[in-house]
């Protein structure tokens, strides 16, 4: 019995070792092609356990005209456990920074659900936007309602503005390529041209937040003694 186990383990080890040697050879070939100063490879390639997406904006080049002010979310639980998830949405709407709590949902394992969100929930009427509004939603997941946070997820960044009485919602590519890095109404075209002439890649333009109140402590690590 012991001998059999030993044989089995030895075979297993040899198999594993052979696979490992092949894997190493493949990786070495891949990495060595980057030259003498090849860098460190392979950190992180898997999907996240919790995902939050804009239903109408699945791709980085998504652009849609909304029929209403609804901008629903999709929440995906890719774990094998039921999760208690609270969702909030943050918006940078010209000089206003506003947050909306969408409450809590219970999501079974390996499922996805829709979560309603309406742009009118912001304390800002997007009709008045002079620059693209920047929106991101966050999901905070726990295994029990009061338990520690197990997972966090953010949506990709979404952008919105009103044009001809319609709400346009889009992801980063249209924001950059079609809507002037946020200057959808060409209000500050002179600045954009200034940046372009200087070879600057402009990825956003708008109003800074009004009256942000911070201290020197940004919550980050303190200096060590």
């Amino acid at each position: 019995m012991v001998k059999q186990t030993l044989m089995k383990n030895t075979q297993k080890f040899i198999t594993m070792h052979t696979i490992a040697v092949i894997a190493v050879a493949v990786i070495m070939t891949a990495c060595s092609s980057t030259g003498k100063s090849f860098s460190i490879c392979q950190e992180g390639t898997e999907d996240p356990p919790l995902e939050l997406h804009w239903k109408e904006l699945p791709e980085t080049d998504s652009l849609t005209v909304l029929a209403t002010s609804q901008l629903p979310l999709i929440l995906r639980n890719k774990t094998t456990q039921t999760l208690f998830v609270t969702i909030s949405v943050a918006g940078a709407l010209d000089a206003i920074r506003d947050g909306v709590s969408l409450g809590a949902v219970i999501i079974p394992p390996l499922t996805e659900i829709n979560v309603a969100f309406d742009l009118s929930q912001f304390n800002f009427n997007i009709v008045n936007l002079k620059f693209s509004g920047r929106i991101v939603a966050r999901a905070t997941a726990r295994k029990t309602p009061e338990g520690p946070v197990e997972h966090l997820a953010y949506t990709p960044h979404a952008f919105v503005h009103m044009e001809e009485d319609k709400i346009h919602a889009y992801r980063v590519k249209p924001m950059l390529e079609k809507f002037g890095a946020g200057d959808f109404g060409n209000r500050v075209e002179g600045f954009r041209q200034w940046a372009k002439k200087r070879g600057i890649k402009l990825v956003g333009i708008g109003h800074f937040a009004r009256n942000l109140q911070f201290s020197d402590n940004d919550g980050g690590p303190m200096e060590e003694n």
Binding site: R134, H157, V172, I200, K201, V203, F208, N211
Partner: peptide, 28 residues
């Protein structure tokens, strides 16, 4: 690769002695 990436913001509350905190106006 050589083009610096930046965002721009309009600022007009330049009075008073308190520090003025501004947030980057881009989300990429």
């Amino acid at each position: 690769y050589c083009k610096p990436i930046a965002c721009m913001g309009i600022m007009n509350n330049l009075t008073g002695v308190e520090k003025k905190y501004v947030d980057y106006t881009c989300n990429v």
